[in-house]
Design a protein around this nucleic acid. Sequence first.
DNA 1: CCTCCATTACTCGATGTCGAGTATTACGGT
DNA 2: ACCGTAATACTCGACATCGAGTAATGGAGG
Lengths: 210, 210
Amino acid sequence: MSTRARSNPLALAVLALLYERPTHPYDMAATMRERHKEDSIKLNYGTLYSVVQSLEKRGLIQVKEVVRDGRRPERTIYEITGAGKLELEDWLSELIAAPAREYTGFEAGLSLLGVLEPEEAVRLLEERRARLDEFLHASEAMRELAAKRGLTRLLLIESEYVTMLRRAEREWVARLIEDIRDGSFEGLETWRDWHRRIAAGLPHDPNHQL
Amino acid sequence: MSTRARSNPLALAVLALLYERPTHPYDMAATMRERHKEDSIKLNYGTLYSVVQSLEKRGLIQVKEVVRDGRRPERTIYEITGAGKLELEDWLSELIAAPAREYTGFEAGLSLLGVLEPEEAVRLLEERRARLDEFLHASEAMRELAAKRGLTRLLLIESEYVTMLRRAEREWVARLIEDIRDGSFEGLETWRDWHRRIAAGLPHDPNHQL
DNA sequence: CCTCCATTACTCGATGTCGAGTATTACGGT
DNA sequence: ACCGTAATACTCGACATCGAGTAATGGAGG
């Protein structure tokens, strides 16, 4: 259809909201906030309005009516189309069924870890571990609160997923720190060597081929 | 400094490459390929050149010389500046030390899981589990190959991280499937109910408040 | 009843990202 | 000697994303 279809999940959220009931962009944003969807789907006003326009151009949603309350700005109410419902189900299915290459900041950082000295790397990893612990505690607290309020598991499933990933990351980071510390990290000498050479402006052969 | 500084990690990779030696953008791309950096840092030609320009504007890198080989296009050789070295270390440190909110497609999908029927959700999750298994096998094979070639752990650390995350995800997805299947998933009836109402066009109260 | 701040609803210009396109040369095969 | 394909080095225009800005209303406090 369009050029860069299915890039921004915010468009998927729009389809999901309009699947429930017709409404206008500002209200979509407010609803996303109330339901804590903005924790899992990046929300930005400018982007929201442009994403809505793009969905309209693609025939997945359409204007239902334009209402004006006094002299406030007009509210443009959209509704989902048949094609939009199909797109919603198909896109959502893809997101669930197909693991995708995602580029995270930490992964990028790890791939350049050799730029730092091992000691510096350890210091930074320890800070990460501490922050992950904070996150996990906060997350635990929220979970208890949510349980008290009788929130069902379906409503917390994204958060359950993210917390599980963070817990796994925490354990991995902790082990990595140990390995570098006690010298069992394989290739530690090469790492140090490479670093000394760079600092001295010497040629270095970062033997990176697979 | 600039408006949207530290957004694209590709800029970090550029700084890291110029930290090793002066070179031109096209060669940076080639080097990133050779070293499998493009697996962890998204590489795109257009973006690369615009990112380089932005780094130059910010004074983090500068043109060293412009050479021409016969009648080929000119190659613009860049080198890193003092400010650039500081930025490299600071940015990299931040990526390692501070866990950041990352928005993944799967998380977005999970947060809208209620749009699907439980049975459909299970089918899709099973497909995901199968694909994760494939990924993990391929990853295992690569790991053995890399070991044979004597690659050091530092060079594979990003891949080790990603594989560990995928393994954790696989186990979580498997448990989730079980819970929905055997009915122990809390709130399954509410889920089904909500769905019936939507399908019938009835009012539904998606009680999402925290 | 007046003032101030939050809320409502959206717009705009700058900046970032995408990937196909261009033009040249090197090189292997026949 | 000729052809086709890969590699070299970069450009361009369409599209996406960002977040500050705008302009009106409603309500709480003095």
